[in-house]
Amino acid sequence: MRLVRAHTLAHNNAVYGVAFAPDGKTLATASLDNQVKLWRLADGTLERVLKGHGDGVAGVGYLADGRLVSASLDKSLRVWRTDGTLQRTLPGHAEYLTCVAVEPEGGGIVSGGFDRQIRLWNADADAQVAAFAGGEATVQCVAWRGDARVFAGAGDDNSIRWFDATERAVLRTVPAHAAAVEALAFDRQRRLISGGADGRLKIWSAEGTAVTEVDALTARVKCLAVHPTGEVLAVGGSDGVVRVWKLGAGLSEPIAEPAHRNTLYGVAFSPDGTWLAAASFDRSISVWRWEMSAS
């Protein structure tokens, strides 16, 4: 397996999030410059800039129907139509938003932030569906599981919480890392993978038991993405290096791509698994062709 660099893209400030559109043709990037940029993946051309947030944009995610959701430090989420127009604004968080995740098949949105709340939204409604105590401190990351209405959240209290979106209930809370939990991702086996400011990667069973733990090789893990096939895991952290780990029963020696001069805040694989993007505090985004067969 290997990475072949395709594009280097830029914002005017730190880049906090990346997401590929369901059709695999567009990459959305979120930045502290208050903007979301939409890039044509084929040639790296900037197609559109989504403006309107009053502060930095902490994250982005695509709904299955192609609409885009952005979460901002201005305490609001925004839902953007496929033509780039604003469909609705979702206020409700009382402090900075730090993270957002969208339901893989459906209209669910989950967000977290400095108000220690994890809020559940529906992309077609103006009001939140539910709010959950996200812990004893800032919520730093959320993730949806692909096969069910289950999501997870974690943050500065070092714990992970699993939630049932249908029942609007907390399933379990597990003390997880020795420092803040900064990144979460579900794999195809319903396992949850977490990365922390303690520099560790952990894999959790669907029942909340830690099954694997490794040194992430970076001082602070900041972002994770599981390949659509479930075979590999991309990890970004404070050293600016993208590492792609083989994801089996455990995690094996990764390939490393020292791509950026500053912390990586976001990584994502395209839905067809052929692209990998990484967003950095150094104001740039790297986009690679991902070639699994080279292994």
């Binding site: 404070s238 001069r261 500053n262 912390t263 150094d282």
Partner: peptide, 16 residues
Amino acid sequence: GRPHGTNFENARDHLP
């Protein structure tokens, strides 16, 4: 610090 980047992330941006 967060959410506007840590002291050290900003230093890596500004100091060079």
